[in-house]
């Protein structure tokens, strides 16, 4: 299991591994927003938390199809499926690797981009905490979507269509926590819901992902 994780991380960091693409996309989305809505500082600071959440979500979505597609194309997935690692473990590791290479850098970059969007000072901590709690759920749900579409050629658009509705609860609670934090309100309730969703998806969704992967390999 550790071997699989280190391999995936190493592959992501080597040339063509796609590490940093999500981060760059996040940057671009956030930079585009002021061009679209205008440079007024008060307007930007009121939408900053939401924009950062949607940017992080889209950046996460962008890198989902890589989770299984490469292993599928070169036959590794067949070989891994017949190896001693259970498929449930395989999909969990894949989700973890995706979070480490995409989710975690996004969390780290968010405060920097938040400065550019005039996020109020009291909003930084809630933003980081909500992203830290929410992005693992995005990775786990995304892994399910990637497992569903692994056999489909050019399934990227379909993957987005399937995954985005599943992201709704995470986005609502995560962005709600970040927004309330920016307004200086209490954030415990949305954070508790967000943590609940993250724990629930981590505990249950790998079984569904493994099931659909098994169907797709057949």
């Amino acid at each position: 299991m550790i071997a699989l994780l280190t391999r995936d991380l190493r592959l992501a960091l080597r040339a063509g591994g796609g590490f940093g693409l999500g981060l760059a996309f996040f940057l671009i989305v956030v930079v585009m927003v002021p061009f679209a809505v205008g440079p007024r500082a008060d307007l930007l600071s009121s939408i900053a938390a939401g924009v950062l959440w949607i940017g992080a979500l889209l950046a996460c979505l962008l890198s989902l199809d890589r989770i299984f597609a490469l292993d599928w194309e070169d036959g590794s997935l067949d070989l891994l499926a017949t190896s001693p690692i259970p498929l449930e473990g395989l999909v969990s590791i894949k989700a973890l690797a995706h979070w480490l290479t995409t989710g975690l850098p996004l969390v780290a970059a968010a405060p920097v981009l938040a400065v550019m969007l005039n996020l109020p000072p009291q909003g930084f901590m809630p933003l980081i905490i909500s992203l830290l709690l929410g992005t693992p759920a995005l990775s786990v749900i995304g892994t399910f979507g990637a497992a569903l579409t692994v056999g489909i050629k050019r399934g990227g658009l379909l993957l987005s269509l399937l995954v985005l509705p599943l992201y709704v609860p995470t986005l609502i609670f995560g962005a709600e926590a970040a927004r309330r934090g920016a307004d200086g309100l209490d954030i415990t309730t949305p954070l508790a819901f967000l943590a609940g969703i993250t724990c629930g998806t981590i505990a249950l969704l790998p079984f569904a992902s493994a099931a659909v992967l098994r169907i797709n390999l057949r």
Binding site: P165, P169, I172, F193
Partner: peptide, 11 residues
Amino acid sequence: FALLSRYAVIF
């Protein structure tokens, strides 16, 4: 997830 979304949007 549809059920979760339902409660999320009420919130």
